[in-house]
Simulated assay, not measured.
Amino acid sequence: MVPSNEDELAKIVRDASGPLAVSGGGTRGVSVEGQKLATSGLSGITLYEPGALTLVVKAGTPLAEVEAALAAEGQRLAFEPSDLRTLMGSDGTPTIGGVVATNASGPRRIQVGASRDHLLGVRFVDGSGHIVKNGGRVMKNVTGYDLVKLMAGSHGTLGVMTEVSLKVLPIPQATATVHVAGLDDAQAVAAMSAALGSPYDVTGAACIDGTVMVRLEGFADSVDYRARRLAAELGVFGPATVEEADWQSLRDCTAYADRPGDVWRVSVRPSAMPDTVAALRAGGDVTVTADWGGGLLWVLCAPNRDLRRDIAGGHATRVRGADDPAIPRFHPEPATNAALAAGLRQRFDPRGILNAGVMG
């Protein structure tokens, strides 16, 4: 089912007699039982005010269309949403609603925050078929449920988004990346932490195969100055150079695309990265790429291995791999969090028909 407007969507949900498998472009490899319900028919930019850095867009609008419209005005989605089609071997078209529903956020999260931090307002249809609106077109405090933040990362379990309002930002004039090679995990974390604690306004800090990459963005003269200063300061960890880097590949984890095995996202405290990586390696052969200053680990491992048994603290989500009831996709929640989540689902989807089982 592909409704073409919000009222049609509300009727479909209201009249549903069984589970609904809600999706945007279907590019992230999540399999859900139920009648398929796609939001791709809800497409188009409702309002775009470049001067106010504000965009209102229907949830099924292709991400590429949104990015093209912003780029034409010298602007962008600052949170750098990932496109996992290459990694997942999937087709389809990523949608802005799918981006928000999964809270998809790339390397720039360490500076500007996640997708939810740029979400100003939402419209959605809840599990009873009611149309709900929350937020607006400017940042403001709210009382009661902050549904704007709640819907981001809910994976369609609380409601089917129909429209989102987003804050956007200008595209920087220049970009530079400082590289420091030949580091072990502890040295890499120390180097990334030093960069993030510097006054040079870092917008990306990652480590691939022992090479730390630190990104700077802004006006050309400023970027040049900051890159030279940062390279000099990071020189205490090893020879530092300023070179181009493929941040899009890091964002989309394309290095693992043609390699067999399962792929996981492991979130930990950056200071815990060395011990976490050591524990993962002790449990079997793994390949690890670190982002967010060491706070996010992309891990490639053998199929059907539950990495959660090998990590202490943090949480892990299986991004790619065969469905296995014994290894849930999402990290099991503590009892208190699970009770809160169940209460929210009961409030917004009392029949339990929206993407049932996706998040436990």
Score class of each variant (00 low, 15 high):
294 G>M: 02
113 G>W: 13
140 K>R: 14
70 L>E: 06
232 A>C: 04
267 S>D: 05
11 K>I: 14
359 M>H: 09
64 A>G: 07
129 G>M: 09
326 A>F: 10
254 T>Y: 05
274 P>W: 00
66 V>K: 07
166 L>E: 04
146 D>G: 08
123 R>C: 09
322 A>Q: 15
68 A>S: 15
160 V>N: 03
186 A>G: 12
279 A>P: 08
234 L>P: 05
63 L>E: 02
311 I>S: 00
283 G>P: 03
258 D>S: 13
128 S>K: 14
5 N>Q: 12
225 Y>R: 15
302 A>Q: 03
249 S>T: 07
11 K>V: 14
48 Y>R: 04
92 G>R: 04
193 S>V: 03
352 G>Q: 11
334 P>I: 00
179 H>R: 13
68 A>F: 08
251 R>N: 08
189 V>M: 10
217 E>Q: 06
293 G>W: 01
80 E>W: 06
300 L>S: 09
348 F>C: 08
137 R>E: 12
222 S>D: 15
32 V>C: 08
188 A>L: 05
117 D>Q: 10
122 V>T: 02
60 G>M: 04
341 A>H: 05
241 T>G: 08
155 H>G: 03
344 L>R: 02
248 Q>D: 05
131 I>A: 12
219 F>L: 15
134 N>L: 08
23 S>A: 15
4 S>R: 13
213 M>T: 05
106 G>D: 04
228 R>W: 00
306 D>P: 11
154 S>G: 11
